[in-house]
């Protein structure tokens, strides 16, 4: 999601994801501190779609990610229609969303891991409701 954003909106034509090997300008790279199999507390940006979905401004989520937006390019999450919608205690971006789109959300954590029968995760109910309004 951020590679597409960087290439097509932020003017970084050779934006790349380091997991696919060397080459280009990595915008996604190994995190200094891997989040593989971690539980993280995130702060949700007040007024963001994500905060509205959750109905609060904090959450605890599970993540399996070892790659993320490189530290030097955190500003990409707040340009060209993108905004940061969640951060963790490092202050780094953990979720993003587009402000010029009905529902365009990316998370560095996996909300599907905290969804359960009878307790659907708001990110996914929000996705379906947005599509149903189409």
């Amino acid at each position: 999601m951020l590679v597409e954003h960087a290439r097509n909106l932020a003017g970084i034509a050779d934006a790349s994801h380091a997991e696919y090997g060397p080459g280009g300008r990595p915008v996604i790279d190994l995190l200094a501190c891997s989040l593989q199999d971690q539980t993280i507390a995130v702060d949700l940006a007040p007024g963001s779609l994500l905060a509205r979905l959750y109905g609060r401004t904090n959450a605890v989520e599970r993540t399996t990610c070892s790659y993320g937006l490189v530290t030097e390019l955190q500003h990409l999450a707040n340009e060209h229609g993108m905004r940061t919608s969640a951060t963790d205690d490092t202050g780094e971006v953990r979720a993003i969303e587009r402000t010029d789109h009905p529902f365009f959300v990316g998370t560095l954590y996996q909300p599907q891991l905290t969804s359960a029968p009878g307790a659907a995760h708001p990110v996914f109910t929000g996705l379906l409701l947005a599509a149903a309004r189409d």
Partner: peptide
């Protein structure tokens, strides 16, 4: 196209 999307 304004199609709802989530990436995790």
């Amino acid at each position: 196209r304004g199609v709802p999307l989530v990436a995790t």
